[in-house]
Design a binder for these strands. Structure first.
Lengths: 190, 190
DNA sequence: GCTACACATTCACATATGTTAATAAATGTA
DNA sequence: TACATTTATTAACATATGTGAATGTGTAGC
């Protein structure tokens, strides 16, 4: 059972046959460090499952500042879901932080999977639901906690991210400047 | 055509018949100012559509601070969607800010509607999708902008909220203290 | 109409994060 | 290996928001 199969199976029990049918609709792809998976302004044609490596999504605000939205390690999905689902222009960029192996699914295949494999429709609905829930919870936590607390929580819940992702991405994900994260890390060491 | 019908019709074209079938699954309810629609720790049994009035959701953090998550005026839906969909304990409270007329739907009716009225299943999926998208966009904007900018954006996009909702709720929604909002409003007037 | 209570404003001071700039360390590439 | 580039650290100072307390203003209920 490969990673994708395992990951789907965690949410819905899926038969070998259904999974293979789904797998036939996907495409394994390599993406090099710093290459773009999605460009802001384009319509997101794919969603990606990360087999190995790291991708991240971010957007550039009016003032030209970059804000990291999501960091996807192995076994996570990433895209500009809004754009993918609505066919409108993406507002996020998605880019590889490391050379990565991903499995991608086109909009067309996604819809076919939803139409013909009920378990997969259910899976994707749960995926969106969870994405929403996490997003809500993240908002609720952003406000409550200081940058230091947010960093410590990230270290605790996603040590892998802290180990493998350059600090300035993490700073941006936490909503602070790299210098501030550096200062915060210093106070933690003491 | 009542507000609920109109609101659904904005997302999916629904026949009179389908709508009436759906309506039969709902229950009009009055809720008084400061009454709870959902209590943190309970499972959210209903979602609510606001016909008149205002409800809001919030959570209380470890330190006892209250954080407003959503403010729902007329034509908006509100609940702890996570709890409603997953049957787990709610982490948010939902409470009326004004005496309000709402239309509520139980989990059972929600599922029945999804099973028997395809348009309604589609509607609810879109509702969750949109909730997710708004949530994502909200995160992306929290970090980019100062409290003053966030307030000005709220005034522009939801003037009704600013007019009708007490300031300390708005401050909390923006992630700042009432005193800070007061100070910010003063600088805007100058 | 009074009284109490919630809400809003203002101020002085504390604190966290931003900004700018210099430097050091790490990494990629010729 | 050496050089250029990116990333991380540090410091001094600027700014925004928090905190606590006092005061003012409105509003609900008696």
């Amino acid at each position: 059972m490969n990673q994708l199969h395992k990951s789907i199976n965690e949410k819905v029990e899926i038969s070998e046959q259904d999974f293979n049918e789904f797998l036939a609709l996907t495409k394994p792809t390599n993406i090099k460090k710093n290459d773009f998976f999605i460009n802001e302004g384009d319509v997101a044609k794919y969603i990606a499952f990360v087999n190995t490596g790291v991708l991240y999504s971010y957007y550039i605000d009016d003032k030209g500042n970059k804000h990291v939205i999501q960091i996807a390690l192995e076994n996570y999905w990433i895209s500009d879901l809004f754009s993918f689902l609505s066919n409108e222009e993406a507002i996020f960029n998605v880019q590889a932080i490391e050379n990565s192996e991903i499995t991608i699914i086109s909009k067309q295949s996604f819809e076919k999977a939803c139409d013909t494999i009920p378990k997969m429709e259910r899976f994707f609905r749960l995926l969106i639901q969870n994405a929403y829930i996490n997003s809500q919870r993240r908002i609720s936590k952003i406000y409550g906690a200081s940058a230091k607390e947010r960093y410590l929580k990230l270290v605790q819940s996603h040590p892998q991210i802290v180990q493998r992702v350059p600090q300035h991405y993490i700073a941006s994900y936490l909503g602070i400047k790299p210098q501030s994260l550096s200062r915060i890390r210093k106070t933690i060491l003491e």
